[in-house]
Computed example of a mutant assay.
Amino acid sequence: MSETTILVAYRAQPGKADIARRAIRALVDTVLAREPECAGITVLQDASEPGRFTLVERWPSQAVFLGPHMQQPHIQAFIQGAGEFLAGPPDISFWHEAR
C-alpha cells in the first residue's frame, strides 16, 4: 500500500492568526505523539498572508485519515473549538505520488 499525502488548508479569522497557529501547532504535536499511523505532518504558514496555514500530512491511506484519525478525541475537540479562531472549515485534498 502506498502512502497518502493529505493537504489541509486553514484560514484564520482576521486578527487571530497567532491564536490559530498556536492551536494548530498544539493539535499537530498531539497527533504526532498519540497516533502512530501518522507518518508526519509539516505545518506551513503563508509568507504574505499569515492567516493562511497548510498542513502536509502523510498517512497510510485516505481511509485511516477519514476514519480512525478523525474520530480521535483531540481532533473532535479541535473541531468543536475551531470556530473561535478559524474563518470556516478546512479545505482537505488527498494526493498520491505520480509514477
Rank of each mutant, 00 (worst) to 15 (best):
R34I: 04
I92A: 06
I24L: 14
V8F: 09
I75C: 13
A12W: 01
E57R: 07
F65L: 08
M70C: 09
Q45E: 11
A33F: 13
Q62D: 13
P50L: 01
A23K: 15
Q80L: 12
G40H: 11
I6R: 05
T42A: 14
P73F: 13
S93N: 09
A47N: 07
Q13T: 01
P60V: 07
Q76T: 12
V8P: 04
T5Q: 09
Q72Y: 08
C38H: 08
V8E: 03
V8H: 06
V64L: 12
D18C: 02
R21M: 00
G81D: 15
E3K: 04
G67L: 11
H96L: 04
L44W: 07
T5M: 10
A87T: 00
G83H: 06
T54A: 09
P90T: 04
A23G: 02
T5I: 10
F78E: 04
R21P: 00
T5N: 05
A82M: 13
F85G: 01
E84N: 12
I24P: 01
L32R: 15
A17L: 02
Q76R: 15
G88D: 04
E37Y: 13
E37H: 12
L27E: 14
V56I: 15
Q13R: 13
I24S: 01
R25L: 06
I41R: 04
E35V: 14
E84L: 12
R25Q: 14
R22A: 13
I19R: 10
G67Y: 13
V56N: 09
G88L: 06
I92D: 03
R52F: 01
I6S: 09
A87H: 00
A9R: 15
P73R: 11
R21D: 00
F78R: 06
M70K: 12
T42V: 10
L86Q: 04
A87E: 01
I6N: 09
E3P: 01
V31P: 07
T5C: 05
I79H: 08
Q80K: 14
C38L: 06
S2A: 07
P50S: 06
P60N: 09
F53Y: 11
F94S: 05
L7V: 08
E37Q: 14
A63E: 15
L44R: 03
G15Q: 02
A12E: 02
R22F: 03
K16T: 03
A26F: 08
I75K: 08
T30N: 08
E35P: 11
T30L: 14
H74D: 05
I79R: 14
V28H: 11
P68M: 08
G88V: 05
E49P: 00
A77Q: 15
A63H: 13
G83K: 09
T42K: 10
A77T: 13
G40R: 11
A9V: 09
K16I: 02
W59C: 09
S48R: 07
S61K: 11
R22T: 08
G88R: 05
D18L: 05
